[in-house]
Design a binder for these strands. Structure first.
Length: 477
DNA sequence: GCATGATCATGC
DNA sequence: GCATGATCATGC
C-alpha cells in the first residue's frame, strides 16, 4: 500500500502528520476501514495505536523499539484541555515507556529502551473532551520533539536515580518526586496486581518513565510561542537560558550544583546575606524566599541585573523551593502554604493521580531552612536575624502520599456537595499532616464556585508539625 | 500556646 | 489585578 510519506524520513513523517490538524480520525479514515478495524476507540490508551495504524497505515509491530522503526522515532498522542478562558493546557504527564524492573537494571542510559524510543518523538496534541470517542477527538498540534542535549543530561541523571532505586530493591518506594524532569509514574489498570522486582521480595506497582507535567507545560509553551500548529525543534536552536550550563551538567548533577551555591552562606543571617549579595533588605513576608531564589539561581556570583524567578530548570522540573523558619530549638514556626484550591479543577478531575494536588505533593521540593540564633527565646523571633541552617531536596514518602489522597478525597467530596467551608475540611487541630485554610487578598476575595456563585479562597497547607518531623527525619540520615 | 482567619509585599 | 510565598493578629 502507498503510504503517502517516506517512513525512513522524519521530515516526511512530520509533513504527513500535519494532515491531522483540525480533524478527527472519523473524518480522515474511510468508512470501510472504520468498520473493518479491530481498534474500537473505547477505553483508555490505544489512541496512538489508532493513529499509527489507521492514519499512517504503518504496520504495527510488536518490536520493543520506536513506533517508526526506520526513522527511529516514537509516536505519542497526548491530551490538551481547554479552560473556560479558552486557554489550552497540558492534561497530563507524557508517559514514555513502561519500566521493566527486571531488564532495566542491566541497561545503561544510552543503550536503554527508553532512550532508543524517546529521544526523538512525534507528539500529537489532541483536544481532550470528556466522554468523546477516540474517533472524534480533534488534533491541534503536531510536534517533533528531540530532547535537547542539556535536558538529556538531567534526564540521564534521573534515569540513573530511578534504576539505582530498583537495584536497591526499592521499586515499591519509587515516587515522581525522586527526580527532576524524567519520572517513574504509576501506570497500569486499576486494581491490577503489583509486580515482582529483582532485588526485593516486596511487590511494586507498575510504573513507566514519563516526562513530568511541568516539563510538558514548557514544551507546549514553546509550541504556542512559535505561532504555528506544526513545530519541530530539530529545525531551530532552542533558547537555553537557565541557571546551570550544559558544561556544568557534564560535571555535576543539577541538584549538587544548586546545593553547592548555598554553602558559603550557612550560619549567615538574612541581613548578612543581603549585604554580601549587595541586595537591599526587603520588608516582604517572603524576604527569605526572595534571597533563597537568588542563591539557588546564582550563588555568590549574583549581580543586580541577573534574572532570578522562573528559571528554565525550575519551570521544567516543577521543583518547589520552600523556605522554612524555625525557633532556636528547631521547631518549625509556620505552616507551609501552597496554591489556592481550584474548585473547578477539583470538581472536574476524578482521578487522584491526575489531580493538581497529586502533582503538587509529589513535586521535588527544595527546602531552605532558616533558624533563630542559639539562646534566643520565641519572643525574640525576627526574620532579619534568622540564619541559614539547612538546604536539602526532598520528596514526600509513599505513606504520606496515601494520607494526601484521603485529604484530597475529603476536599473533593465536599466541593461536589457544595460544602465549601472550613468546618467540612481537615483543620490543623486534627494533626493529620495537612489542613485547609483561607488564603486570599482579604476576606472579600472570592472565586467562582462550580456549583454556582462565588466562594472564599482556601488553600492547601502542610502542618508546621509535619515539616518539623520531615526535617528531623532528614537530619537522622 | 495554639488554631484559625486575615493580610502583606512583590513581580508579572 | 492577581497569584505567590509567605507571616501576622486575634481570641480562646
Amino acid at each position: 500500500m502507498e503510504l503517502g510519506y517516506d517512513k525512513t524520513s522524519i521530515p516526511s513523517i512530520f509533513a504527513y502528520s500535519q494532515k491531522l490538524i483540525g480533524h478527527s480520525l472519523r473524518e480522515l479514515v474511510s468508512e470501510e476501514e472504520q468498520v473493518s478495524t479491530n481498534l474500537q476507540g473505547q477505553g483508555k490508551g490505544g489512541l496512538g495505536q489508532m493513529i499509527e495504524e489507521l492514519f499512517f497505515h504503518y504496520p504495527i509491530n510488536s518490536d520493543p523499539g520506536p513506533d517508526f522503526r526506520e526513522a527511529g522515532m516514537d509516536l505519542k498522542a497526548t491530551g490538551l484541555k481547554k479552560l473556560m478562558s479558552g486557554e489550552l493546557q497540558i492534561k497530563e504527564r507524557l508517559v514514555c515507556d513502561m519500566i521493566d524492573y527486571e531488564k532495566v537494571v542491566d541497561e545503561s542510559f544510552e543503550t536503554s529502551l527508553f532512550y532508543m524510543k524517546c529521544h526523538i518523538m512525534l507528539l500529537i496534541f489532541y483536544l481532550y473532551e470528556k466522554g468523546v470517542s477516540k474517533w472524534d477527538l480533534r488534533y491541534i498540534f503536531t510536534v517533533i520533539w528531540k530532547l535537547p542535549e542539556k535536558d538529556l543530561l538531567i534526564i540521564k541523571h534521573d534515569f540513573e536515580t530511578i534504576v539505582e532505586k530498583i537495584r536497591h530493591g526499592e521499586a515499591h518506594l519509587l515516587s515522581e518526586g525522586d527526580t527532576v524532569y524524567l519520572a517513574a509514574c504509576r501506570k497500569g489498570q486499576k486494581g491490577e496486581k503489583d509486580r515482582k522486582q529483582p532485588y526485593s521480595d516486596t511487590l511494586a506497582p507498575r510504573r513507566a518513565f514519563s516526562l513530568k507535567p511541568a516539563y510538558m507545560r514548557t514544551v507546549l509553551e514553546y509550541v504556542k510561542a512559535q505561532g504555528k500548529s506544526a513545530v519541530s525543534n530539530m529545525e531551530m536552536e532552542l533558547p537555553s537560558e537557565g541557571i546551570v550550563t550544559t558544561d556544568q551538567l557534564r560535571e555535576h548533577s543539577f541538584e549538587d550544583i544548586i546545593i553547592e551555591r548555598f554553602r558559603p552562606f550557612f550560619g549567615h543571617s538574612y541581613l548578612e546575606i543581603c549585604d554580601t549579595l549587595g541586595l537591599v533588605p526587603s520588608k516582604s513576608k517572603s524576604r527569605l524566599a526572595i534571597i533563597a531564589n537568588v542563591i539557588a539561581a546564582h550563588g555568590s556570583q549574583y549581580r543586580q541585573q541577573n534574572n532570578v524567578e522562573n528559571s528554565e530548570e525550575f519551570k521544567k522540573s516543577g521543583i518547589r523551593l520552600k523556605t522554612i523558619t524555625s525557633f532556636s530549638n528547631g521547631r518549625v514556626k509556620e505552616d507551609t502554604s501552597f496554591e489556592n484550591i481550584d474548585y473547578e479543577e477539583i470538581f472536574d478531575e476524578e482521578e487522584w493521580l491526575d489531580s493538581r494536588l497529586y502533582e503538587i505533593f509529589t513535586s521535588r521540593f527544595l527546602f531552605v531552612q532558616f533558624q533563630q540564633p542559639e539562646g534566643e527565646t520565641q519572643k525574640d523571633f525576627d526574620l532579619n536575624k534568622l540564619k541559614l541552617k539547612r538546604v536539602f531536596f526532598w520528596t514526600m514518602p509513599p505513606e504520606d502520599i496515601e494520607t494526601a489522597k484521603a485529604y484530597w478525597q475529603n476536599i473533593r467530596q465536599h466541593v461536589l456537595k457544595n460544602e465549601i467551608e472550613p468546618k467540612y475540611f481537615w483543620n490543623k487541630a486534627m494533626h493529620r499532616k495537612f489542613h485547609v485554610r483561607p488564603k486570599g487578598r482579604n476576606a472579600a476575595d472570592l472565586v467562582i464556585n462550580p456549583n454556582g456563585g462565588k466562594v472564599r479562597k482556601y488553600c492547601y497547607w502542610f502542618n508546621a508539625e509535619y515539616v518539623t518531623n520531615l526535617i528531623d527525619n532528614y537530619s537522622r540520615h
